[in-house]
Simulated scan of single mutants.
Amino acid sequence: MTAPATLICRNVWKLFGADAERRLAALGPAPSLEALQGAGLIPAVRDATIEVRAGEIFVIMGLSGSGKSTLVRCLSRLIEPTAGEILFNGRNLLTASEAEMIEIRRHKMGMVFQHFALLPHQTVLENVAFPLAVQGVDRARREARAREMIALVGLTGRESALPRQLSGGQQQRVGIARSLAVEPELWFLDEPFSALDPLIRRELQGEFMRLQSVLKKSIVFITHDFDEAIRLADRIAIMKDGAIVQCGTPEEIVMNPATDYVREFTRAVPKAKAVRVRTVMQPGVPADRNAPSVAATATVAEASAAFLDGAAEIAVLGADGTAVGRLRREDVVQLLLGGSEG
């Protein structure tokens, strides 16, 4: 059963230029990029429509300048859209007053950006508790909540440290803990790990996935790194020139790219990292009783370790732990040696 949508974005536009709203309306319902530019407008987001479901990680990705960060700022109304509709739990955010939006951001939205933006003269504890202080939460309760979040991100014992005494990865953990302190329903993360070196970045990706398994937030995550996207995402939207050119699961995008741009974008991605075992298994066929097992939702890359240990086939288990099929070594080889599209 599909989870309900926490956030719905319908036909959202963000155009820069004089009298952008009127000029967009004059161009008709689906103006081309060339028509917009010919009208003296700079299109940052073009007719974007997405739904973010409860508890999912929805990744928006694209090259620099594709519009992904602008779209996310429109979703939280840090930037005012030129046209469209944005529904948060059924409420149209574009009709909310600025005072109402401030309250929504303070109490229901969490935000983490590439630059940590920690307060340099405040301790880790004070930084994490800061949004609760803004809300007017009393000191004892906000510090207790801050300590919970510090423990959640693995920084117990560093509560009294100043930001300059922390590594880059630790500073980003403080930023994550601070954004979670208000218990947001919707969490925006704009390239939160891109300033970190590869080893720390991968460590924090793993930590992020652990946090999500506990918290089950509705998350909008921006990245330009496809490896990061397929590791984290339940679904991915790929943007180009302000427009969403494909939206789907990592597996759908890697196996069935909708455009030449997406095909080029995904060309170097190892299919085994994106394709789930359930896609290539033999359903209903039992494996040898001594065979190792793997979840149907695991990626082929995750399952492949068993083949390296000498197994010829693997039992595939459903959500209830019962066998639903088998995965053979030759099925994996066929996936890896087959064409780029399924």
Rank of each mutant, 00 (worst) to 15 (best):
M1D: 06
A5D: 12
A5E: 11
A18E: 14
E21Y: 00
E21Q: 13
S32W: 12
Q37G: 00
A39T: 12
P43F: 11
R46L: 04
I50M: 11
I50E: 08
E51L: 05
V52M: 08
G55F: 04
I57T: 06
I60D: 05
M61E: 03
S64A: 05
G65K: 04
G65Q: 06
G67L: 05
S69A: 10
R77T: 11
I79V: 14
P81H: 00
E85D: 07
I86D: 06
G90P: 06
N92T: 05
N92M: 07
S97K: 07
S97W: 04
S97D: 09
S97E: 10
I102V: 14
E103Q: 14
I104Q: 10
R105A: 02
F113M: 14
H115R: 14
L119A: 14
L125D: 07
V134I: 15
V137R: 04
D138Q: 03
R141L: 12
R141F: 04
A146T: 08
T156L: 10
A161N: 09
S167K: 05
R173I: 05
G175L: 01
S179F: 08
E183Y: 01
F188T: 09
D190M: 09
E191P: 02
E191Y: 07
F193R: 02
R202N: 11
L204I: 12
M209Q: 15
L211A: 08
F221G: 02
L232A: 04
A233C: 03
I236D: 01
A237N: 04
E252K: 01
D260G: 15
F265T: 08
T266V: 15
V275Y: 08
R276H: 13
V280H: 05
Q282P: 00
G284V: 07
P286F: 06
R289M: 10
A298N: 14
A298Y: 10
E302I: 09
A306C: 11
F307T: 04
D309Q: 15
D309M: 14
A311Q: 09
L317G: 02
G318E: 10
D320V: 08
D320I: 02
L337G: 01
L337V: 15
S340C: 05
E341P: 01
E341I: 13
